[in-house]
Design a protein around this nucleic acid. Structure first.
Lengths: 146, 146
DNA sequence: CTCGCTAACTTGAATCATTCAGGTTTAGCG
DNA sequence: CGCTAAACCTGAATGATTCAAGTTAGCGAG
């Protein structure tokens, strides 16, 4: 039928997770959304399957994150957000004013971001890069009123 | 006497803040410490001046951060930490296991980290770079037990 | 197709960092 | 010396996330 390994149900199965309506809906919601928070994911999921508890969403997001099916993004000072774009090591632009998050491709080639100038003996496995600033809309607002 | 503008009292005065025993001690504690959390800063400060409330520490750290006298670092999933090294846009290495934080100089020259490949129209003013991995000690532990 | 195991789900309470509220003290200027 | 706002205090509230303990149901074995 749908031999698409990225289809929610198959992605879950492939990760060794059970295929439940809730988790399928959660994965769909995260993929369809844009850096959604837990609350938004819960609401979106409920719109698809009727009812899910917040805890189920938290547990599912943990499992999905551990399985590499979703990625957790957590800008300093704010709650966690989730995105469906995984596998590449892309970065984020975060608006200080409205909180909007935009994806940015890795500044350098493919994942050489894992290369600090001096690793102090650490074994680095991930580079978390967040650019802070003002999004176009907020820039306009600010320059107009300031 | 001590014509040193970086001396705690002068730094506070220079930033338009009042020179109180508590804030001098807080600034000293942050500078002497290594990416301390609020609790550790509170304890260190009490060791210097006897008593300070947690709220006073929070308020002072906000003021000091706003004044650019200390820098707030907040690794995803953990509480905020503060450091006295400000002015340069250095990055951090964080150990996933023990939480240790090490400073790393900017990967590229001086602050060109503010340059994402595509800024999507954002006006970027800060780049937050965190390298995640295992510190030397935890690497040893892990390879020995795993 | 049924059984059983355990992942997944549920409700409800707890934790932790941080902030809010409101009232009191005190640094630093006039 | 006295005023005013910054700094401080105690105590309560918030909000994201986690823990606890009991129930339901996916799915592989029989």
């Amino acid at each position: 039928m749908t031999p698409d390994p990225t289809a929610p149900a198959d992605a879950l199965r492939g990760a060794g997770l059970r295929v439940t309506a809730a988790r399928v809906a959660i994965l769909e919601t995260v993929r369809a959304g844009d850096h959604l928070g837990v609350e938004a994911i819960t609401e979106g999921t409920r719109g698809r399957v009727g009812h899910v508890s917040t805890q189920a969403v938290y547990e599912a997001l943990h499992a999905l994150t551990a399985a590499g099916l979703v990625r957790r993004v957590e800008p300093a000072g704010g709650p966690a957000r989730f995105e469906g774009r995984v596998g590449d090591n892309h970065h984020h632009l975060v608006c200080r004013r409205c909180g909007a998050i935009e994806d940015v491709d890795c500044v350098r080639g493919r994942a050489p971001c894992l290369d600090p100038a001096d690793d102090a003996g650490f074994r680095v496995d991930e580079a978390d890069v967040t650019f802070w600033g003002l999004c176009p809309a907020c820039r306009a607002d600010t320059s107009a009123s300031g």
